[in-house]
Design a protein around this nucleic acid. Sequence first.
DNA 1: GCGCTTCCATGCATAAATGTATAGCTGTTG
DNA 2: CAACAGCTATACATTTATGCATGGAAGCGC
Lengths: 313, 313
Amino acid sequence: MEAHVAWELYRSFLAVLTEGSLSGAARSLDIAQPTVGRHVAALERALRMPLFTRSQTGLLPLESALALRPYAEAMSTAVAALERAAASQGAGVRGVVRITASHVIGVEVLPPILARVRERHPDLQIELVLSNRMQDLLQREADIAVRMARPAQQLLIARRVGQVDVGLHATAQYLERHGTPATTADLHGHALIGFDRPTAFIRAASKSFPLRRETFSIRADSDLAQLALIRSGAGIGACQVPIGRRDGLVRVLGRQYSLLLDTWIVMHQDLRSSPRCRVTFDALVDGLKRHVAAPVARAQGLAPGKAVPKKSS
Amino acid sequence: MEAHVAWELYRSFLAVLTEGSLSGAARSLDIAQPTVGRHVAALERALRMPLFTRSQTGLLPLESALALRPYAEAMSTAVAALERAAASQGAGVRGVVRITASHVIGVEVLPPILARVRERHPDLQIELVLSNRMQDLLQREADIAVRMARPAQQLLIARRVGQVDVGLHATAQYLERHGTPATTADLHGHALIGFDRPTAFIRAASKSFPLRRETFSIRADSDLAQLALIRSGAGIGACQVPIGRRDGLVRVLGRQYSLLLDTWIVMHQDLRSSPRCRVTFDALVDGLKRHVAAPVARAQGLAPGKAVPKKSS
DNA sequence: GCGCTTCCATGCATAAATGTATAGCTGTTG
DNA sequence: CAACAGCTATACATTTATGCATGGAAGCGC
């Protein structure tokens, strides 16, 4: 490894890795193809190891290159975060905020909240990254995350917005046709919508009630697909109670099947002083509190208000 | 913010930030001072914001520069990690491993363990980073960490090596001169060695027994200093039981003052396949298990073996 | 098999970044 | 107050990196 490796080389290296060819990398970086080729060659010389096997169809990364890839990606996300921060400098709510959330939250819950923020702050730009892996706040892949677990890192600011209840739901039409199950045993013979391969979350949920792949007659790994299936009357499946309620779904077996998920809004503490993040953070806390707490916890408990229809517990 | 900011500029930016002057940065990067000046100017132009106020005595970073600093540092640590990984490519146990641990562990416990590893693997180089903030594994500031808490990130491999017991200790000479306290009340009047400003760890410990600054007649924030004070017979203070035992210290009030710390060895899972990290990880697990478990848990409990002398509980 | 596209590698003219030398300013020291 | 050491900024020669044009090789579709 030579004295100084120019950081540019790493940028080209990563581009080749993601594009799969010198030409592609050159296009994406808006530089000339020979330049990228020279960068890769220089890097290989500097690190004293081959990184790719050249062919006429592109560059095939060697194991060594793959091993280095995560680090180059870390550089890249750092650059992205820096430039995001730079673009948002100065007072006022402007610039880009990247939010990460689960697919369901991102599709079903966040849009109206974000629309409202944007209306109040037209100079604010929002990027929504939907992903179920949530490890990326420290690396600054996102500025703010909506999570279903208390974050353990002390560099993060976390605000709990409450617990969201997950229960079994179906459409009224489905239940009219197939009957409303009154006990767990009644679920047999129903079209149950569930997961295909278990995720970490499902494994955790299995502690409350046994869940096996074979239990379900309709399987989909995408939460959104499951939700869509429930909505279209395909059967009985799990979804967040506030969403089911909003969409006129009927909750089945009530609190017998209930999974309370802690919900947190999380942000890196460095961003506390950034107006754009501050505002978005507060809006998310507010919006999700409204989504999570008010109608649900009460409908679930004993408080008055519009109760979930046809509760059968 | 302009289309493409050369990554080199960020390197120079960070160097100026840490060195405080263009000339200093140039020296540290081994390039010419005007080059660094041009880099900073180019970056300011690209980001459309001033970053420093120039003076004849150096460059003073503006708030904007300070806000961007963490990101530039993230880039830098990514580069360091990449180059570390690159240097250790190929089979065999060679290259650099960075280990982070608390000051006490790093000074009192790790050296013999690391010496043994190094003897077995002469091509292995070890960097020891002592710090009580432990947030840095994901950012790859270090490859392996010795922690006192279960890590919550799922990208990390963690192995529990047991619980290390922390108790009150003093030298035999001190106790001969001042008497051995038999009850908590007896501690009054003794020279108690403790913290100056409470840390997160101390706040957590306070849940077990009340700790206040005023309790102590000798205060030092450095764990190592406290340990040195105990060793030199200055008074009674807390230290890890295995260390006290090894150094011939006498435990005071035995299990009445006992704080059990879970001890974990943690590594990023990407490094699993790296022989150098693998070997070091295993050696740390083994060495710390030996340090933590064997003599202590037994001496503390009821198993036979060389008991801690003069136990007074 | 022929054209078409896409890829990498090479040679060469040009543009860009770098280093050297130097001037000017500031703060410190005797 | 003069000498000195440290810093930045500028001018200019030179090295270095880049882009462009081109050649050859491989895959794809007709």
